[in-house]
Amino acid sequence: MRAGKPHRVLPGFPLALGYTLVYLALIVLIPLSAVFLKSASLNWEQFWAVISAPRVLASYRVSFGLSLLAAAINAVFGLIFAWVLVRYHFPGKRIVDALVDLPFALPTAGAGIALTAIYAGNGWLGQWLEPLGLKVAFTPLGILVALIFIGLPFVVRTVQPVLEDLDTELEEAAASLGADRWQTFRHVLLPVLLPALLTGFALAFARAVGEYGSVIFIAGNVPLVSEITPLLIITKLEQYDYIGATAIAVVMLIVSFILLFLINGLQFWANRSRARS
């Protein structure tokens, strides 16, 4: 054993780490770097022209705007959902709790055609909504519904464990000091839940931005109106415009990496405030 090298009792470190790094490089890092290298064959003006074309800009508005809205809706309802699952007892709770993960487990193509069938003009809900002037399927509203579906578990499953770990003492102290339930929630509980809630929001947003399968069936995919950015990548690929597809992919990857970085920071904050409370 050389000096300065920590003594390891357990075997297999070089093999395990070496295998991990090689596999990671071959499957993830080298293929991902292909996107950046390919886009380098464009100069800045060409790159900018591709990623700021009107149709592409419209797709960012659809993808990022609706993803934000869906994540915000999920933050509100996901919090209520997590609260109800932790705080109240009602019949069928275990089944409801297990099914929260359905959007993780149900393949997106199945979810996509099911949502379309529900909200289409002749669908279970569509037939009642359309006479009211509310068209959901094949409009941006349909995309929103699909993004709410796939994002919900992210918020519930990040908030739920924090709520479960929460000591009743905090609320007892607030109550003994004369706070009503709403004041306790607003000033005592919400600050404790906030890091987890924001993490869930960011995870739901990140997933929604890249989502493809559950969206394309219900979206209608009208250019400039209901066309999401991932679909635009596929459209360009089908036209053999590899460079164009790659340039848009670079924009999406950069956004994803920024989000990953943010989520890392949020989770660090969440774990720290959880350890403190």
């Binding site: 293929p31 996107v35 890249g210």
Partner: peptide, 13 residues
């Protein structure tokens, strides 16, 4: 955190 569409694209590239 990578869109599935981009996951396909990288192998096409």
């Amino acid at each position: 955190s990578v869109s599935p569409v981009i996951a396909g694209l990288i192998f096409v590239l």
